[in-house]
Amino acid sequence: MEHGKHVFRIVILVAVILVVVILGRGLLIPKTYGLYGRYRAANVAEQMNARPVLHAGAAACAECHSELAAKRTAGGHRNVSCEICHAPLGAHVLADGSVVKPPIDRSFTLCARCHRKMAARPARFPQVDLDQHVNGPVEGKVCLQCHDPHSPKP
């Protein structure tokens, strides 16, 4: 194999690349990877600790806004969390304790997300054909002109 020197060299090069890949694989796969499944187990705790608590749930809102909370609990939206329209608590009560006005989503698209007429929704669930239901343009806060989201009536 006097003339096969180049083949020998390329085989060595491929072998070196393979060894680098195998060694690199050992270095790149994190220690807790695969502990519970195909993900890095430690990442769950890291992500949780890296983020401030944003959503606190309806009970936390009720601590200050008991009147509205009671109205909601009695109405048709009792299973819809406050934070869906009013933004998470974290955008209202900041980490330093100060209180700011949260951005409230009053758009018709938010209502339409659940109440837009779709054949796949249960028939008893309140839903409307937007173009026929609204007398005028379907835009902006049009739903809230007639419906009270805290205690909606059909």
């Binding site: 006097e2 003339h3 096969g4 020197k5 180049h6 083949v7 060299r9 390329i10 090069l13």
Partner: peptide
């Protein structure tokens, strides 16, 4: 790129 070998003899080309 040639991996340092410049062998272009007919035998090498055959390989």
């Amino acid at each position: 790129l040639a991996l340092g070998t410049y062998d272009t003899s007919p035998e090498a080309i055959e390989i």
